[in-house]
């Protein structure tokens, strides 16, 4: 396989895995109107949860249960769901901006815990040397990455199909009603708090799944992987792709990650040698520019929201 092909496989693994995270955020924001600005915090819980459950036993560290990765990832997702229930119960009564501030703060707290709770997370060193799932069955890194890409594509596809069924059902209709007007939905007998909590927890669980897959692929976890910029990248993906549309969420993940990596390559190639670190900030500025540009010129994103939410309705509608 050519160098470009090898890189393309690596690129797609990361982009599709981010796509799962964007799908989770889309369920929260695109369909329910929940402004989760703490995406990276739940990604970290999924990642550390998986790493602790799958990692080898280490004398100085808590955990290291050596579970198979599918089980460890499931455990990470459950941890994420539990954390989301606690966070959701504490914050979901807040209005949009306040919910964003609260979840942003919680994500920072989670990252700081990851950095400082050394006996559990390995502190600044992180957790390294995690076993790569099924790697012994492959002769080369390239073939292993192809296998991993197939797995990630299948998982992403399953998540997409399941979410499409969910959001185009009466349950999805409830989410949309809450997003559109909570007061009206409440006056029509809907339990707003429960609906918001369901969407928040399910979205965070998917974000946790993405964190677990990331750890399985990379083989280590470090607090530097969970900086706030990732939350903004995921938001950019959703805004660019099209909030309220699952296909848009996946498209946004691929497009924005492509722009991010290409801009990184361009900066490393064309910026002066002594200016490389500062030039890295240009990438962050580009993300901000992209979000603002989309909001001004194409607020619906590349693929906007579709008009209907019920698959049942479409089949038999007159």
């Amino acid at each position: 396989m050519s160098g470009f092909g090898i890189y393309l496989v690596f690129f797609l693994i990361i982009a599709l895995n981010y796509g799962i995270m964007v799908l989770g955020l889309n369920l929260q924001w695109g369909y329910t109107g929940l402004f989760n600005a703490g995406v990276v915090g739940f990604y970290a819980i999924g990642a550390y949860g998986t790493a602790i459950l799958a990692g080898p036993d280490r004398a100085a560290l808590i955990g290291g249960f050596g579970l198979p990765f599918p089980l460890a990832i499931l455990g990470g997702m459950i941890l994420c769901a539990l954390a989301a229930i606690v966070v959701g119960l504490a914050t979901l009564k807040l209005r949009e901006e306040y919910l964003a501030i609260a979840t942003f703060g919680i994500a920072i707290t989670i990252q700081l815990v990851a950095l400082n709770f050394e006996s559990l997370t390995g502190g600044a060193n992180g957790l390294v040397g995690l076993p790569r799932p099924f790697i012994d069955a492959f002769e080369s890194t390239t073939s292993y990455n192809l296998f991993f890409l197939a797995v990630v594509a299948c998982v992403t596809g399953l998540v997409y199909v399941a979410l499409e069924a969910a959001v185009r059902s009466p349950w999805g209709r409830l989410l949309n009603a809450v997003r559109e007007d909570e007061v009206a939905a409440r006056s029509l007998g809907k339990n707003i708090a429960l609906i918001r909590l369901q969407a928040f927890v399910l979205g965070c669980t998917l974000i946790g799944l993405s964190g677990g897959i990331y750890v399985a692929f990379i083989g280590f976890v470090s607090p530097l992987d969970f900086l706030p910029i990732l939350t903004f990248q995921i938001w950019a993906m959703l805004i660019v792709g099209g909030s309220g549309n699952n296909a848009g969420a996946l498209l946004g993940a691929i497009v924005v990650w492509a722009l991010w990596t290409m801009s990184g390559l361009a900066i490393s190639r064309f910026s002066p040698v002594g200016f490389q670190n500062q030039a890295g900030a240009i990438q962050t500025m580009l993300i901000g520019l992209l979000i603002v540009s989309m909001l001004i010129f194409r607020p619906r994103g590349l693929i906007g929201e579709r008009a209907t939410v019920s698959s049942h309705k479409e089949r038999g509608a007159p």
Partner: peptide
């Protein structure tokens, strides 16, 4: 109104205890 939902969907939201409201 639920502005971005169709008029029909606005009405379909209303009835209680819909089986499909359970995930």
């Amino acid at each position: 109104p639920f502005a971005r939902m169709t008029v029909l969907e606005n009405l379909l939201v209303v009835p209680e205890r819909q089986a499909g409201e359970r995930f």
